[in-house]
Design a protein around this nucleic acid. Structure first.
Length: 738
RNA sequence: GUCCGGUUAGCUCAGCUGGUAGAGCGCUACAUUGACAUUGUAGAGGUCACAAGUUCAAGUCUUGUACCGGACACCA
């Protein structure tokens, strides 16, 4: 049997490209080289010490989670940006980290403990629970880290950060104390979103409204008719509110009292005229429950009304409910209706009423508004600005946190891509209320506040004998809001901080623009007088091939780890980039990933062909080029510049598509095909010239594609003859423009 | 209710500052065992949602209409 002749090229090329044989090996090689760390790049001479910095933080995934397609898309985008800028010769830093996801993690561990030992958190105590959580975190964190590496992410693991580690803890405490001392954090009793299941408050942004069908009751309230879906809140309703201009009730005067027969007997009701009552809504009359409704509370405050609690923290009725006291609201509701029916107070019931029920996004409990003493960030309080590099804001200006957040974006300090999200961002800020910071859960950053006999001190460590620390912890987004700073060592003015902050890009999903992006802007503009990042790149949601949301219940989840095993990380990355315009959701099916696996193989074969064709080329000579040879080199240049300009504009989806199209349909289909007769022809100098061109073509292709498909390009690079490799790894080769 | 998008080939989408339609997948025909667990060449397929306006010229700008989607707010 005759072997085809394959002079001087590696045996590796004799079979199709096999991602699983190469990816782990290549990643280990990159990691061992230290090139993910910009300091090492400088040490080894691949980056100039004074090169322009490029920095980015990884939006920290939940430490106990597993990788899903959303993460994969995020990692693909960020790694492309990182590799591109590294190849441009910048001091490039992409910082990895994981998030403690306090609420989610604690409830996960609690449920494990409950399943195993039938114990609740109060049974095992704070310290023990924390120990269990730490253990759980330690055990499960390697999963997400390993999966992140599988995607080819060129993160500097030597700078790995965890939201709950010492450095981050220090940053959180420092931030809290400074904001408290400036009066931007205060303690106050206000209406909060209380989750009776998890026994904690949640912020407005964590409340999810779920559409539900419930009976809507019309009750006779003296001469009026009032409507409600929640009869159990109605015990204390002694104010009846109507619009001042509502003709139907012109006979009643504000402040007038009437006797009304109510659930547990007669009460004295007071008429309140307030514009909050919508005349179009039902009868135009309502009673209010200020303790359990933020809207009602505002009305009550306007008229200085009594405010009474009806439901306790566990969701049970209080003494005010009389015979129903101690009963859980779920059980009480039908009993109350029964009694009211017997008393003839029920006028009618609308069984088919849909309304939105507030639930805790992360636990699913139904929110019961309560008035509670909590810690808050005041977003409207005026203060005098310290040193500032924020465009449009100078030292000494009187500002508010809201103003800072708007100024940072309005004056171009932060650019958001795609820019239509600017409006979404402003819209959110206009609606922004004070931010409830404290959470009644144990896992998280403990609030540095101490109490003694009604006195409060905010500081690091106990003020002394008899002081007890606030048992509450901080909203997880408080620490996340510091992330660009804390990962770089803030509040210490480390070299990292001064070099890499503000970061160049923040890449994340548009779904957490408010949770996270806005909060980072809030915290950083105030604490550091700077923006946290210059650019925000928002990616969309990954949907299935039919554009449906991926979900467990639909069974349409595509697992990125499966896809990597099946088609390779390169193919998975490209499938998540091409056709994925920033801010738009993208459909993804296996077919698409398979198509890019073919592309990786195509590149593999292109390389094999070129290496075979140039095997006898003398690299020490520079041959004389024909016009056509020149034209091909120009073509390379033009296309490399086209890809570059799209990358500069953050149009990764176009850049990837262009690179793909150029390599496959220009290089493979035309340049390689037309080179065949020249390479096989008699004219030795024409052959040498074309060999030179082919060599350039291959090297440029590998470089152009490296950010998008790092594994296959690096695998090929490692097989190139020494003469073609300007650097030991493609990872740090020079980007092919200029 | 407020705000923001979208509507272009069978499907998924691209079309930047206006100059008479593009890609990928799919489909049809032909070719090819080659650098190619295939690939190449060619082709079919679109009154660019609808209406009016600006303009020498409108997927592209303006206004309106109709659907579709999203974010936020929220009701007794």
């Amino acid at each position: 049997m005759e072997d085809k002749q394959q002079p001087n090229i590696s045996e590796a090329f004799l079979s199709p490209y096999n991602p699983s044989e190469n990816e782990d090996r290549i990643y280990a090689m990159w990691e061992d080289s230290g090139y993910f760390n910009p300091d090492v790049c400088i040490e080894k001479g691949v980056t100039k010490p004074d090169a322009e910095p490029f920095s980015m933080v990884l939006p920290p995934p939940n430490v106990t989670g597993t990788l899903h397609m959303g993460h994969a898309a995020m990692l693909a985008v960020e790694d492309i940006l990182t590799r591109y800028h590294r190849m441009l010769g910048k001091r490039t830093l992409w910082i990895p980290g994981t998030d403690s996801a306090a609420l989610a993690t604690q409830s996960k561990v609690e449920s494990i403990v409950y399943k195993k030992e039938k114990k609740r958190r109060h049974d095992i105590g704070r310290e023990e629970l924390m120990r269990r959580i730490d253990e759980f975190v330690e055990e499960s964190k390697s999963t997400i880290i390993n999966q992140t590496k599988k995607m080819g992410s060129s993160l500097d693991w030597s700078r790995y950060a965890f939201t709950m580690d010492d450095t981050r803890n220090k940053a959180v405490t420092e931030a809290f104390i400074r904001m408290y001392n400036d009066g931007l954090i205060y303690r106050g009793a206000r209406s909060v979103n209380w989750d009776p299941n998890m026994q904690t408050t949640v912020s407005d942004d964590e409340v999810e409204y779920v559409e539900k069908n419930s009976p809507f009751y019309y009750f006779k309230y003296g001469p009026f008719t009032i409507g409600t879906v929640r009869p159990e809140t109605k015990f204390g309703d002694k104010y009846v509110v109507m619009h001042p201009d509502d003709e139907r009730y012109a006979a009643y005067e504000h402040g007038q009292t009437i006797e009304v027969e109510w659930i547990n007997g007669p009460i004295t009701a007071t008429i309140i005229k307030d514009e909050a009552a919508d005349p179009e809504m039902g009868s135009g009359v309502m009673t209010i429950t200020p303790w359990h409704s933020a809207v009602d509370l505002e009305i009550a405050k306007r008229h200085d009304l009594d405010i009474e609690q009806v439901i306790d923290e566990r969701g049970c009725l209080l003494d005010i409910a009389g015979e129903f006291a101690g009963t859980h609201i779920k059980k009480a509701r039908p009993l109350i209706i029964e009694k009211m029916q017997a008393k003839g107070l029920v006028e009618k019931v609308d069984e088919d009423y849909t309304h939105n029920v507030a639930t805790n996004e992360r636990g699913g409990g139904v929110i019961e508004p309560q008035i509670k003493e909590q810690w808050w960030v005041d977003v409207n309080k005026e203060f005098t600005m310290g040193p500032s590099t924020i465009p449009g804001i100078s030292e000494g200006d009187v500002v508010t946190l809201k103003k800072l957040m708007i100024a940072a974006v309005e004056n171009g300090g932060v650019s958001i891509f795609p820019d239509r999200f600017n409006k979404t961002y402003y819209h959110w800020i206009e609606n922004l209320h004070d931010w409830c910071l404290s959470r009644q859960i144990w896992y998280g950053h403990r609030i540095p506040a101490w109490f003694k006999d009604g006195e409060v001190k905010v500081q690091v460590g106990s003020p002394g004998e008899g002081w007890t620390q606030d048992p509450d912890t901080l909203d997880t987004w408080f620490s996340s809001g510091l992330w660009t700073m804390s990962t770089l060592g803030w509040p210490e003015m480390t070299d990292d901080f001064t070099t890499y902050h503000p970061t160049t890009v923040l890449e994340t999903g548009y779904d957490i623009l408010f949770f996270w992006v806005a909060r980072m802007i809030l915290m950083t503009t105030y604490l550091n007088g700077s923006v946290p990042f210059q650019n925000v790149y928002l990616h969309g949601l990954v949907r299935d091939a039919n554009n449906k949301k991926m979900s467990k219940s639909l069974g349409n989840i595509i697992d990125p780890v499966d896809m990597i095993d099946k088609f390779g990380a390169d193919a998975t990355r490209l499938s998540l980039i091409v056709g994925a315009a920033p801010g738009n959701d993208m459909p993804l099916g296996e077919d698409k990933i398979r198509a890019y696996k073919k592309f990786a193989n195509k590149l593999w074969n292109i390389s094999r062909f070129v290496l075979t064709s140039i095997a006898d080329f003398d690299h020490s000579t520079t041959p004389t080029l024909s016009e056509r040879d020149q034209a091909i080199l120009t073509d390379l240049q033009v296309n490399a510049e086209a890809v570059t300009s799209e990358l500069e504009k953050f149009n990764l989806y176009i850049a990837a598509e262009k690179a793909y199209h150029f390599v496959w349909h220009e290089i493979a289909d035309r340049i390689l095909e037309e080179a065949k007769p020249v390479i096989n022809g008699e004219d030795a100098s024409a052959k040498a010239a074309r060999q030179y061109v082919l060599k350039e073509t291959l090297v440029t292709s590998l470089k152009l594609l490296h950010p998008f498909m790092p594994y296959v390009t690096e695998t090929i690079w490692q097989e190139l003859p020494e003469a073609l490799r300007e650097t030991d790894m493609l990872l740090v080769a020079q980007w092919p423009t200029k």
